[in-house]
Design a protein around this nucleic acid. Sequence first.
RNA 1: GGAGAAUUCGCCUAGUGGCCUAUGGCGCACGCUUGGAAAGCGUGUUGGGUGCAAGCCCUCAUGGGUUCGAAUCCCAUAUUCUCCGCCA
Length: 422
Amino acid sequence: MIDLNLLRENPDAIKASQRARGADEALVDQAAAADVAYRAALREFEGLRAEQNAFGKTVATAPKEQKQALVAQAQEMAAGVKAADAAAGEAEKALNELLWQIENVVIEGIPAGGEDDYVVLKHVGNKPEFNFEVKDHQVLGESLDIIDIQRGVKISGSRFYFLKGWGARLELALMNLALDKAAAAGFTALITPTLVKPEIMAGTGFLGAHADEIYYLPADDLYLTGTSEVALAGYHRDEIIDGLGEGTHRYAGWSTCYRREAGSYGKDVGGILRVHQFNKLEMFVYTLPELAEAEHERLLAWQEAMLQACELHYRVIDTAAGDLGSSAARKFDAEAWVPSQQTFRELTSTSNCTTFQARRLNIRYRREDGKTAPAATLNGTLATTRWLVAILETHQQADGSVRIPEALRPYLGGQDYIRPKA
RNA sequence: GGAGAAUUCGCCUAGUGGCCUAUGGCGCACGCUUGGAAAGCGUGUUGGGUGCAAGCCCUCAUGGGUUCGAAUCCCAUAUUCUCCGCCA
């Protein structure tokens, strides 16, 4: 949720942000008007309530013979108060409905435009060269007997798979490497629930335009999360976080993630690039608003260290305003080179949600002056199942084997290559 | 799944329709006292909203209701605990 003070003092800044996103600019004026109407209705109610409270004391202390007349008078008053209360409630609801539709104010200077208007910040590493015909990860996965798509489809339908043998172990190795790196950087490990209540899903901003991406269990009124970000953001919901002034709170959440991939029919159909279920280690940070941008750079640096440990060629892009999620004020994606596709594919994403998400979830900290204020939240991927695609393809050898990056070997009993069965 | 009990300010707790504008303790903060500390004494200590301000309004798990007036009475929901049943 946007800052009400900003709406009152500088609505043009919010309009500019909505414009950059290609979102509805008119919402801003509508919300500002609803805010004025709400405050007027609230003052009306509070004035009447104050009168009623004062009168109630008169009734309570009045002598018996006067009481009946006073009660009759109070009855009339009560009706007026009730109506004013209802009107204020309606006005507040109308305001909130508008406020919740306005997306986070983007950070000044980020690229304008849509999905294709990102700015490439850097390329790292060298494009892998092959003196043989490269195989895609699906072919590699089958020939090495480490990814079983067919049986995944048999039991669960399209976009499901089994990781098998070294494939399963490689994913766990990747997650463990990421977790060790996160722990070394001061993150607290968390294994999170993947079923969450509607208010948590809504608070994190996932029930907006992309609600059809999410699995929902009507019998229990629970949502399956597409990222542990949801649980990690909900973790401190309705809390005033202790000690945030003394230090940023960093969590590394591991969970399985579920995505319906509605509307992506025919896109990335082969292999495990786009699947309904995968695992992810997610960084999630609670910090002071003024530290958020520096923390965002740090999250990106940790992601890059992980990509480099996996010996991948990648680029970093600064996502354009129109391609940001509603909660994000800025987003960096790191995309790894996928040899079979001769293109870069997203492996990590890190978003600075400033105070937007915290305001929706009522997550605050105590400032030096003793007042409470919404915290800033940020998130970023540290490892996912999708990384196997880039790792397998990048490190494939002429003989059909795959070289395991050095950093992962300690987690695989020292294994250096995954070789096809003889 | 069934029966019962509970939910009050960080923690414990008083409170059974109007002097509740919520009690007391612990903890915490500040001050006095002290050579320094402890003890003792004093003061403060839930959040939110609105208003230039004084102030006012809301907040006793949540949402409804009864009433002139609700922490208190009624209904629903959530959570926790105990017992029983079922399952692993």
